[in-house]
Lab assay of single mutants.
Amino acid sequence: IRCIGVSNRDFVEGMSGGTWVDVVLEHGGCVTVMAQDKPTVDIELVTTTVSNMAEVRSYCYEASISDMASDSRCPTQGEAYLDKQSDTQYVCKRTLVDRGWGNGCGLFGKGSLVTCAKFTCSKKMTGKSIQPENLEYRIMLSVHGSQHSGMIVNDTGYETDENRAKVEVTPNSPRAEATLGGFGSLGLDCEPRTGLDFSDLYYLTMNNKHWLVHKEWFHDIPLPWHAGADTGTPHWNNKEALVEFKDAHAKRQTVVVLGSQEGAVHTALAGALEAEMDGAKGKLFSGHLKCRLKMDKLRLKGVSYSLCTAAFTFTKVPAETLHGTVTVEVQYAGTDGPCKIPVQMAVDMQTLTPVGRLITANPVITESTENSKMMLELDPPFGDSYIVIGVGDKKITHHWHRSGSTIGKAFEATVRGAKRMAVLGDTAWDFGSVGGVFNSLGKGIHQIFGAAFKSLFGGMSWFSQILIGTLLVWLGLNTKNGSISLTCLALGGVMIFLSTAVSA
């Protein structure tokens, strides 16, 4: 259960009878995928790494000078000259100064003066180019299975845990398959586009800190620079940016070097996208990844198990997540596992009318040892309800109150669905055939309105939902006002479609 501690969480529900669903994975976010007769899966884009970055340009932001020398000439005696002028490691300046009897010249006039100092770069920052084909995306998957609280967001041991898996995709191999043991396998067909235009970005490294910066900004930095990788004795261009020549006297000129420019660069980098280094690879934390999940090989585990009949206890007080759902960790005293956990939410304890829904599909106890633990997640209705676990006299209950409203949740879900469709863009549509167009249209309606429909009408039977949709269509056909007619027709059509397409 990876997503319960992530604030940016998206719930995606598969269409009834569908074998695939489109998701948008982004750094700092987590996606929970639910479908009829399929286990619930949490998917998170953990890291995006980039390798084989080529150094484009380096800037010196802290330097020192040494070996200063000057040469001067009297008027009419030609130009002052130093051998160091031809050495690229030196920074030199030529000027004219007033000369006369007082400073060793027989004539009054302008004399030539040249001053040089050896330039040494102490600290530099480097910009590297990123090729999209060198990106690698690491995705962690977790099935809502027989897990306890100690396994949440624990990325170790996934090789031997059938509840978890790690997959890596690249532009050259965008397809992967996550093996989930008894739950089958989940196929991923990803489109490795981060949403960032790397043709316009460089990877900047300064003092063990890293950013993504725009090329134009990078090339306009007014500091000494050299092109390409460091060859040991780089040729620094624009050395004068960190060196200041003071007022010249008759035979000498003082040279000083400016202080470190790291603070000024940090100020200019305010708002830039931060990154990290992992050995020789860069780690990015921006952008998104679009994936199509193929769920035809994914299956529920323990459908044929019998119900657990022994007593359950709450190991922890049920807690609310950031998303309005409830996490419950229970301990089973029996030894008759594997068995299914009898769990439901009810409005009252007399009729036990089921409300809400299970995020953890078909929760089971897989071990036959005593005191096995299991964590599950529920989506309670707004208002008061009861969490009921167990059967008969051994069942345990917990009162729950959820604040908020169904309308607010439906609106929030619609906005999130619209954002998801905007990110998917043209990849969500198939114009290759008439059937493809209608299929894409259905998927689009489901992406945007599916979660809201589930919130508003999830407790009704599909037949009642179709009746309401048919009534809206009838009202649309018999209303003389054009805008009201079109609105009723659209709402009725969407409702009829979703009542037959969205899983219960």
Rank of each mutant, 00 (worst) to 15 (best):
M460S: 06
V143E: 08
G493L: 08
D71C: 05
V434R: 01
Q261D: 11
G390C: 05
K209W: 09
I359L: 03
Q447L: 04
M34V: 09
W101F: 06
L180Q: 08
T254H: 10
C488H: 07
K283I: 01
E79S: 09
H235I: 02
L212Q: 07
I387V: 15
M421H: 12
D430Q: 08
Y305G: 01
P75Y: 07
M68G: 00
R292Y: 02
T397M: 13
H214W: 10
S146Y: 01
E162W: 08
G109T: 01
K93A: 12
A410D: 07
W101K: 04
L471R: 07
A280F: 00
P363V: 01
E276Y: 15
A264T: 11
E168V: 01
Y332C: 10
T115Q: 09
T233I: 09
P234T: 11
P381E: 04
A268I: 11
L196G: 00
S70T: 14
V97T: 14
G458Q: 15
Y59R: 02
K443A: 10
S304P: 03
K373R: 15
T487W: 11
N8P: 00
S503P: 06
G100V: 09
S306D: 00
D71W: 09
L298C: 03
L223R: 07
G425A: 14
A117L: 00
K394D: 03
R2T: 06
Y137C: 12
K301Q: 13
I445T: 12
D393H: 15
R420V: 03
L489F: 13
D98E: 14
C339S: 04
V257R: 00
T313M: 13
L486E: 05
A452Q: 12
V388K: 01
V364H: 02
L477C: 14
F108C: 11
T427K: 14
E240G: 15
D22L: 01
K118L: 12
L45Q: 07
E55I: 02
A241S: 14
Q85T: 03
L498F: 12
Q85D: 04
G109I: 06
E44I: 03
L486I: 15
T254Q: 13
E168H: 02
K301D: 05
D230R: 14
H266D: 12
A264R: 14
L258F: 08
T233D: 02
G271M: 11
L467W: 03
G476V: 06
P222C: 10
K84E: 07
N8I: 04
G187H: 01
Q85W: 07
S306M: 05
V97K: 03
K480R: 15
P381F: 06
E79C: 10
F11P: 01
G442S: 05
L258S: 04
P234N: 09
E367Y: 01
T48S: 14
E191D: 12
S16I: 01
E62M: 11
S433D: 05
L441S: 01
N134K: 09
M34C: 09
H446R: 10
N439T: 09
E191A: 08
I365G: 00
A63Q: 09
Y386H: 12
C339F: 07
G195P: 01
C116G: 05
A280C: 01
A35D: 05
T120N: 13
F497V: 11
D98I: 07
S304L: 06
E55V: 14
A361D: 02
P318K: 07
V12G: 04
L201E: 00
K454W: 13
S122E: 13
V97L: 04
G100W: 09
S86M: 05
L113H: 07
T406N: 14
Y59D: 07
P234Q: 13
Y305Q: 11
A250Y: 08
V423T: 06
V364W: 03
L486H: 04
C121L: 01
K93Q: 15
V91N: 11
D296S: 14
M34I: 08
V317C: 01
T325P: 03
D200S: 14
I445G: 00
A69P: 00
A165F: 03
T156C: 03
Q344T: 11
L491W: 12
L441E: 07
I407P: 06
V143A: 12
M140A: 14
A241E: 03
S433H: 04
K128G: 00
V91H: 11
D10Y: 02
L498C: 06
P342E: 07
T120F: 01
G458E: 13
T397I: 15
W225L: 04
H323S: 03
A227T: 15
G127L: 01
V91M: 11
T76E: 06
S199G: 06
G442R: 14
K290H: 06
G334V: 02
V415E: 08
K394Y: 03
T40W: 11
R252F: 05
L45A: 03
D42M: 12
T309M: 12
L293H: 02
D430P: 03
V143T: 03
A178T: 13
R402H: 11
D296N: 15
A275V: 15
H288R: 13
L186C: 05
L141D: 10
M68H: 01
K281C: 00
A451V: 15
A63N: 08
H398M: 08
G404S: 06
P75F: 08
L82V: 03
K110N: 09
F183V: 13
V167A: 15
Q344E: 04
H144C: 10
S485M: 13
M277N: 14
H219M: 09
G228R: 10
N134M: 12
G109F: 08
S173Y: 05
R138Q: 15
D348K: 03
L424S: 02
K419S: 03
R402Q: 05
D230K: 04
H219Y: 11
I43M: 15
K239Y: 06
R357T: 01
Y386I: 15
E412N: 09
I43P: 00
K118N: 14
A275C: 00
M15D: 04
L212N: 07
I130D: 07
T327G: 08
A504P: 07
K454F: 11
K394A: 10
V303N: 01
K443Y: 11
Q147G: 14
K128R: 15
R292I: 02
L258V: 04
M53H: 03
E162H: 12
E329V: 10
A311S: 10
I359E: 06
G442W: 10
D200C: 02
P234E: 03
